[in-house]
Design a binder for these strands. Structure first.
Length: 676
DNA sequence: GGTTGCGCACGCA
DNA sequence: TGCGTGCGCAACC
């Protein structure tokens, strides 16, 4: 749960901004809170994230940019307009402390979302939207408390209301059949939405249960320097839009740009063009691209179902067989093998790249998750964090890119949402998740992992993730560093993706083989800022990651990593770094490098970082954390996801240190297991 | 330079 | 026509 104090501050800030007719975007909120209360922007963001997940604050895409709304007020509004649904509000909502303040009205929840939803879905079809969502206006706050509410929300309502949640977490709602809540607003503005970057402070999260998981996962990256982080800024191309926002705004809004450009979103397809005005849930929508991608999306969606099913089957099998150890790690190979054995699948051509792409998408959606080591696994409640993290990471990466383009200014990142999710799948997943959530709630024990959050996470992030992950189509803009092949996979066999062997090429940049290219594309997509890729936007907020994020505990990690650390990379900031241990614990992957062993390339960690930077992958470079210990250097990748994205480029380094990687992987794996 | 106030336009109901 | 929203500009600190 969010801290009451922060909740108040944030809501107050949002109200204040609104009252002065300023867009309550992440930057402004963070700035104002900092100014007024001295709160750390990262923390503010984290809290905001929590509030979003709690639906105390709604994250909406309005006029192409992300805005945050005081759910209570919004709801109120909606109520007036539509109906006052008694139920939701019912006390539960109030449960949240805040309610008191906001509560008064609260509960409708949707308003903001609904708006968004409407847009997305179809602009006006209230009913349709309403139907989906149920209209239930749960008060955001309540979310946590009442299980049912949450579920409903997520399921039905989400679309609209959820928008918020979706946006924020990205998740939940999204999953719901339609797109997620996150909608992108892509509307006329064409801007991409800025993302909210939520970062989750790990520290904070730890407190909070709910989101913690999610956040933490995400957290990893924080790029943001100071406060908000970074983000992406946007490069909005907007068509003229006003893009100029002040810096703060700029960051947020800027992203918008291409909104139209290339969204992959399915959701948007049907919809009419969004009007600028309504806030939407963030989703990526894209019209044009959508049509193009539709076919492929469908196919992939289908494949996605099978993939998920495959993972389930494989997971079950492994569990059955390895009760003690826990599920065996699943990699692309295993999944491919399984799929190939399945009837029907044979017909299709399941290329590795294709499966991988779909896999990524599913991971993004939250239907599958990637372990720290890069293995594929089913999402688990505990894992909630993982998904989000992925999302967040992606967003973070996007942000970084954007930031580069635009400026270095730190800010939040927008998440791109994709709406690729298929309704059916989502529904199934959601149902499953909801059940889990309910159970948890009943139990109460894990209050921390608030169901709501969990659900939200899942859903939301799914959306977002998907969007990015999938779109392979986009050409990789950035140069790819050449990589050496690494055989790393062999041992640890981290997920194929991660370890995918690559050709050996000079680090300096040579060309990449097709496989690599595909992978890179995927990676790039993930990383790509909305503007470059899809017009849509995202929402997640991923935040940043500050330090600790996720910390799940893993003693093992510490052991391996533990050491005094010093950042080699210029970019790395102490703050980001955090204790090496933490990082490791957070799920970061450490690549241990021994100084002399970099041959034949003879690179040092710093060289690797520099290399990436020089090749145009500064973001990746940033993703590393380096440490030197006793003459040995450690390359830390904040997240598994990140690692995956970078794996190609890191090929050489990974290869060289394969051994280390293995060890680390092992450690991580254990963590995951425990986590699960 | 940052913050705040507000006119105005936009889109929706 | 009313309302919510927020851009963009001016004023203020």
């Amino acid at each position: 749960m969010s801290e009451p104090k922060y909740r108040d501050w944030i809501l107050e800030t949002i109200d204040s901004l609104r009252s002065r007719k300023a867009r309550p975007d992440l930057e402004r909120i963070c700035r104002m809170v900092r100014r007024r209360h001295g709160s750390d922007p990262d923390r503010t963001r984290a809290e905001l994230e929590k509030l979003i997940q709690e639906q105390t604050v709604l994250k909406v895409s309005y006029k192409g940019s992300i805005s945050y709304r005081n759910a209570a007020k919004v709801q109120r509004k909606s109520r007036k307009k539509s109906e006052l649904t008694p139920d939701r509000s019912s006390g539960s909502g109030e449960s949240l402390g805040e309610q008191a303040k906001h509560a008064t009205f609260n509960n409708n929840g949707d308003s903001a979302h609904s708006l968004t939803d409407q847009e997305e879905f179809g602009d006006k079809d209230p009913e349709s939207t309403g139907a989906r969502q149920n209209l239930d206006p749960h008060p955001p706050a309540q979310t946590l408390a009442p299980a049912p509410a949450v579920q409903e929300r997520s399921e039905t309502i989400l679309p609209q209301t959820s928008g918020n949640s979706c946006v924020s977490c990205g998740a939940t709602d999204c999953t719901v059949g339609s797109g997620c809540g996150v909608k992108a607003s892509a509307p006329k503005d064409k801007r991409l939405m800025p993302q909210a970057g939520g970062k989750c402070d790990s520290s904070d999260h730890s407190k909070d249960t709910n989101k913690d998981d999610v956040c933490d996962a995400a957290s990893q990256h924080n790029t943001k320097s100071a406060g908000c982080g970074e983000t992406h800024s946007p490069s909005r191309e907007d068509n003229g839009d006003k893009a100029k926002k002040t810096c703060a705004s700029a960051s947020s809004s800027s992203s918008s740009s291409s909104g139209d450009v290339g969204n992959n979103n399915h959701l948007s397809r049907n919809k009419p063009q969004p009007t600028l005005t309504k806030p939407k849930l963030l989703r990526v929508g894209t019209t044009r691209a959508a049509s193009e991608n539709e076919a492929s999306d469908q196919a992939s969606a289908d494949l996605g179902d099978r993939l998920v099913e495959s993972v389930r089957s494989l997971t079950e099998r492994s569990r059955a067989t390895t009760a003690t150890r826990g599920p065996t790690p699943l990699g692309l190979k295993e999944i491919l093998g399984y799929l190939s054995t399945q009837s029907g699948l044979g017909e299709e051509k399941l290329t590795r790249s294709r499966v991988k792409a779909v896999l990524e998408r599913e991971v993004a959606r939250g239907r599958l998750r990637r372990t720290h080591l890069g293995h594929i696994a089913l999402p688990t409640r505990g894992m909630g964090a993982a998904k989000p993290s992925a999302r967040l990471l992606k967003s973070a990466l996007q942000d970084r890119q954007l930031a580069k383009k635009v400026e270095v200014k730190p800010e939040e990142q927008p998440m791109v949402v994709d709406s690729t999710v298929t309704g059916r799948e989502r529904e199934e997943e959601e149902e499953r998740k909801e059940k889990e959530v309910k159970i948890e709630r009943k139990v109460g024990g894990e209050a921390q992992v608030p169901p709501a959050a969990g659900t939200a996470e899942v859903k939301g992030h799914g959306d977002t993730m998907v969007a990015k992950a999938v779109p392979p189509s986009s050409p990789s803009p950035t140069p790819t560093p050449a990589t050496l092949n690494h055989t790393v996979k062999t041992e640890a066999q981290p997920s194929d993706e991660v370890m995918e062997p690559q050709k050996v090429s000079q680090p300096a940049g040579s060309e990449v083989n097709q496989v690599e290219e595909e992978e890179e594309k995927m990676d790039i997509n993930d990383q790509q800022p909305p503007d470059t890729q899809d017009p849509v936007i995202m929402v997640s907020d991923a935040p940043c990651l500050t330090s600790s994020v996720a910390t799940k505990s893993c003693s093992g990690c510490k052991m391996e990593v533990g050491v005094s650390s010093c950042l080699l990379t210029p970019t790395a900031s102490p703050r980001d770094m955090g204790p090496s241990e933490e990082r490791g614990m957070n799920g970061g992957v450490f690549v241990k490098v021994e100084s002399g062993s970099m041959n034949p390339v003879d690179w040092t960690v710093a060289d690797v970082v520099n290399y990436f930077t020089s090749v145009g992958f500064a973001e990746q470079a940033l993703a590393f954390r380096t440490q030197e210990i006793d003459g040995k250097s450690l390359l830390l990748m904040q997240r598994n996801d990140v690692l995956t994205g970078l794996s190609i480029r890191l090929g050489p380094a990974l290869k060289i240190y394969e051994r280390h990687v293995k060890v680390l992987q092992k450690t991580h794996f254990q963590d995951d297991e425990a986590f699960c």
